[in-house]
């Protein structure tokens, strides 16, 4: 009979932990605590004569099934889970919004530049569209080629300094707001396309609410989340 391979407690704990880490109900600190518990429990059970493998199975049984534990921890981290989802939702909305405004501003700027420097009145809309398309496709390709590393690094940095990042978001959105107003003034001032002054004014007010409101919401969410994480 072949002897079974030696049981590796550290590897077993790693697998067990990876299983739990998939659920948003557990924070890394919770998992550290449960792992410490399992180690203590395994050590005590081994002292009663069980093998490491047997001790691990019994210790896991006493700790509770992942599903039951997840349910109980989720109750405690409930606010955390939802605030986290909402934070990413608002951040995603802001990111996409900022990006599309930026692209559209770039297109307008290109059209204005073409009109100013070559005096062309035709093909301005085509120029606007082409620049927008180029920036859009270029950014998408960049994001998809580097997505994993890019987003991982970004998430780690945001989590490390939430206040700084919400301030940065606020500054960036304010800047985007100013740039947008500026590009609209340029449109009215230089382009032969006549734009209704009324539309521009209302748009400006709406952008203002959007740009200044969503970073404030994000800042509130992020600071609230870090307070919750500290408290629990």
């Amino acid at each position: 009979m072949a002897t079974p391979p030696a049981f590796d407690l550290n590897a077993a704990l790693r697998d067990w932990r990876a299983g739990l880490a998939a659920s948003p109900a557990f924070k890394p600190d919770d998992l550290d605590q449960l792992e410490a518990h399992l180690r203590d429990s395994v050590a005590t059970l081994q002292a009663t004569g069980l093998s490491t493998n047997e001790a691990f199975v019994v210790a896991q049984l006493r700790l509770g099934t992942p599903a039951a534990l997840g349910g109980e921890f989720a109750k405690q981290n409930f606010a955390n889970i939802w605030l986290q989802r909402l934070t990413w939702l608002v951040a995603g909305y802001m990111g996409i919004n900022l990006f599309t405004r930026l692209v559209s501003s770039l297109g307008t700027l290109a059209a204005v530049a073409l009109h100013q420097f070559s005096g062309a009145n035709r093909h301005l809309a085509t120029c606007d569209l082409l620049v927008q398309l180029a920036v859009l496709v270029g950014s998408l390709v960049f994001c998809f080629r580097k997505r994993q590393r890019l987003f991982d690094r970004f998430a780690v940095r945001v989590h490390a300094r939430p206040r700084l990042w919400s301030f940065l978001c606020f500054a960036l959105m304010t800047l985007a707001f100013v740039a947008n107003v500026f590009s609209q003034i340029l449109t009215m001032r230089f382009l032969p396309v006549s734009l209704s002054v009324e539309v521009v004014r209302w748009n400006t007010i709406l952008f203002g609410i959007e740009y200044l409101g969503s970073p404030l919401l994000l800042a509130w969410l992020v600071t609230r989340r870090s307070r919750i994480s500290v408290a629990s």
């Binding site: 919770d30 550290d32 605590q33 449960l34 410490a36 518990h37 180690r39 203590d40 429990s41 050590a43 006493r62 700790l63 509770g64 039951a68 534990l69 109980e72 921890f73 109750k75 405690q76 408290a231 629990s232």
Partner: peptide
């Protein structure tokens, strides 16, 4: 059910009944 104690401890800590601290154990773990 041993794991169920921890959410209770966390709740009690959030209610300022307890405070917690990670410390090294004699076994070498925390």
């Amino acid at each position: 059910t041993e794991g169920m104690l921890y959410p209770v401890l966390h709740r009690m800590e959030a209610d300022d009944l307890l405070e917690s601290e990670w410390k090294p154990a004699p076994t070498g773990h925390r």
